[in-house]
Every structure is written in C-alpha cells, then in structure tokens.
C-alpha cells in the first residue's frame, strides 16, 4: 500500500505536468474564423472561414457592406438554406464566383467541438488566468 502511494506520488506530478504542457495549443492562422452555432448539433464538422484568404481576393466592403456580414464571429446565424438562396457564403460559393456548395468538406473542415472564435485574437492571446491558477 505504501509503495503504491509512493508510486502515485511520482505519477501525479507527472500527469500534472502533462496538464500544463499538453495538449499543444492550436496554432491555426491569425483570423481563421470558426463558425459553430449549429454544426456540432447537426453532426457536421464546424465551418472554418479563412478570413486572410478571402481578403486577398476581396475588400472588406464586399462582404461587410454589400453582403451584410456583421463584424462578429458566429453573429450572422448562417445556415445552409440561406447559403443556397445566395446569402452570406452563397453570394459567391455558387459555382460562378467560387466553387459551389456541394463541396461540403471544404467549409466543414473543423475538429468537432471547436467553439466559434476568431483564432489568434488579442483577447485569446492574453496571459490566461487558468495558467497562473490552474483549476480556477
């Protein structure tokens, strides 16, 4: 019994160490936008919108003024019906300006369970209170 406790004493800190260091933090591109209002619940992978990729091709005005995307990740209640009716992503992913909607896995490419976020934002990169006081 004593010996087992001793072994556990060795094991515990090691696993605690694991909690600190692994799993390695996601290092996706700055401004990859994960949109997951409905995907998880629908059994689809979350959609990932590569914001940096699109700004190489379009000015902000096209999406945020002409197509009406609000400045908020997950804030547009996008769904597939709106997309096939030509709204939001469907303004371009229609087989004319960009490849069409049947390429499900080009957009639904996120790891299941990944929450809605703008990856790499300032707020996300601030020193995390959880790292200073783990478990709190």
């Amino acid at each position: 019994m004593k010996k087992l406790t001793k072994n556990l004493l060795i094991l515990l800190p090691l696993t605690a160490g694991l909690l600190f260091t692994a799993p390695p933090e996601a290092e996706a591109e700055y401004a990859d936008v994960v949109i997951n209002n409905y995907s998880d619940a629908a059994g689809m992978r979350p959609a990932i919108f590569p914001h940096w990729f699109h700004r190489i091709r379009f000015r902000c005005k096209v999406c945020h003024a002409d197509l009406g995307f609000k400045f908020q990740a997950g804030g547009n209640q996008i769904n597939m019906l709106k997309i096939i009716d030509g709204e939001y992503c469907g303004g371009c992913h229609n087989g004319e300006i960009a490849w069409s909607v049947e390429n499900c896995d080009m957009c639904h490419s996120g790891k299941p369970g990944t929450p809605t976020q703008v990856h790499g934002s300032t707020v996300q990169k601030l020193v995390d209170p959880k790292m200073v006081a783990p478990g709190k």
């Binding site: 996706a28 590569p50 996120g110 790891k111 790499g120 790292m131």
Partner: peptide, 30 residues
Amino acid sequence: RLLKGAGERNLPPTEDGIHDPANPGTALLQ
C-alpha cells in the same frame, strides 16, 4: 511560463490544431 503561441506560424491546415486532418477537404486548403 506564460508566453503562448511561440511556435511556428502560418502552419498548413492539416497541422494547425483546429482543422480536422481526418476531413478529406482539409488537405486541399491552402
């Protein structure tokens, strides 16, 4: 102790921790 994200940048989607490498489309992304 606290610096985050000091790793490599501009990683391919298959390795970035957010895209699912098991998804066939992931490998096609730039």
